[in-house]
């Protein structure tokens, strides 16, 4: 599948934003979130990342001005559900940000935090299911797809909260432990995902797609239907060399998991340089998650390419 930059920015940026929203809401529920400016900056950053992501996602639309219609088909469409969940999450999160901005102290913040956390999980789950529900792409149509989306959102969000807390001089061991655990969970999920897609050669063949060749026969393209690539080939036929893919996988695993895990581990046990370590971890993870998301698209193979020379999909 063609890796559209707008969708990579959208899923990584809003993923981190929802992750941050989730953890700061839980921290507030547990009474552990440092108050004052820190709480407002954290939720403002979360909402900014989410908004940048959502705006970016509208950039690949042919008619962004009609996007309001996308909230209507939540009964059948995961994309519509995602839109509904995203907008619904703005209400409690926006109110929470407003309350923290004016510094009001009310009991309702706990309820708003709970709703924000639920909204964040629901939205990221919907994002994962947009891809996970497509049976045309075997690399996406896996139970692990939404799990990886949720785990990476949680890991990148926790890293951002750790960075903010240490920058505000409010670093605590618990956020280090949460970051560490969520990074390890995300790493295990992603490695399991890669192993799973490598073990699946695809169940559909050109013979099934064309009904030709019969038992034990073969089918190969002879004359193409058009001389230059069309939309279907450009959008669905993106190919990344296996050699590059495995190198990029290693790079993204190092940047997204290995470097941050080591940095956070040091930060937990030697809190002296926590701010720098968390910053290094967050920058590495940011680069790593963008590479991971690019690969998620580039490695995805679409069944329609059986008509254009793919032998299995």
């Amino acid at each position: 599948m063609h890796p559209a930059y707008s969708v990579i920015v959208f899923t990584t940026s809003s993923g981190a934003g929802y992750g941050l929203l989730f953890w700061l809401s839980l921290a507030h529920l547990a009474g552990r979130l440092p108050g004052g400016a820190m709480a407002f900056v954290a939720i403002a950053l979360a909402l900014a990342l989410i908004t940048v992501g959502l705006l970016s996602s509208t950039m690949h639309l042919g008619h962004p001005e009609r996007a309001i219609g996308a909230f209507s088909q939540w009964r059948s469409s995961w994309l519509s559900r995602e839109g509904v969940a995203a907008v619904a999450t703005y209400a409690p999160a926006g109110l929470l940000a407003l309350i923290w901005l004016i510094g009001a102290d009310t009991g309702v913040t706990k309820l708003l935090a709970l709703l924000s956390a639920i909204g964040a999980v629901a939205t990221v789950y919907c994002t994962g299911m947009i891809y996970g529900s497509l049976r045309t792409i075997r690399q996406w149509n896996k139970g692990l797809t939404p799990v990886v989306y949720l785990a990476l959102s949680g890991a990148t969000g926790a890293l951002l909260l750790a960075v903010l807390m240490s920058l505000f001089g409010a670093s605590a061991q618990w956020i280090g432990v949460i970051t560490l655990v969520s990074l390890v969970i995300a790493g295990v999920a992603k490695l399991a995902y890669w192993r799973q897609i490598d073990a699946d050669p695809g169940q559909y063949t050109t013979a099934m797609a064309t009904g030709l060749g019969g038992q034990g026969g073969s089918v190969r393209p002879l004359d193409p239907p058009h001389t230059k690539p069309n939309f279907v080939m450009r959008e669905m036929g993106y190919q990344v060399a296996r050699k590059h893919a495995s190198r990029l996988r290693r790079l993204s695993a190092i940047a997204l998991f290995a470097v941050p895990i080591v940095a956070v581990l040091i930060a937990v046990f030697a809190p002296g340089g926590a701010a720098v370590l968390y910053l290094i971890a967050a920058l590495a993870a940011g680069w790593g998650v963008a590479t991971e998301r690019w690969l998620f698209f580039a490695e995805a193979e679409h069944v329609s390419q059986l008509y254009y020379g793919a032998t299995r999909a």
Binding site: L61, R66, H302
Partner: peptide
């Protein structure tokens, strides 16, 4: 139609 192209992704026949 908002031109999100998701329907084309869902079609195995291209």
């Amino acid at each position: 139609c908002i031109g999100c192209k998701l329907c084309s992704w869902a079609c195995p026949y291209g």
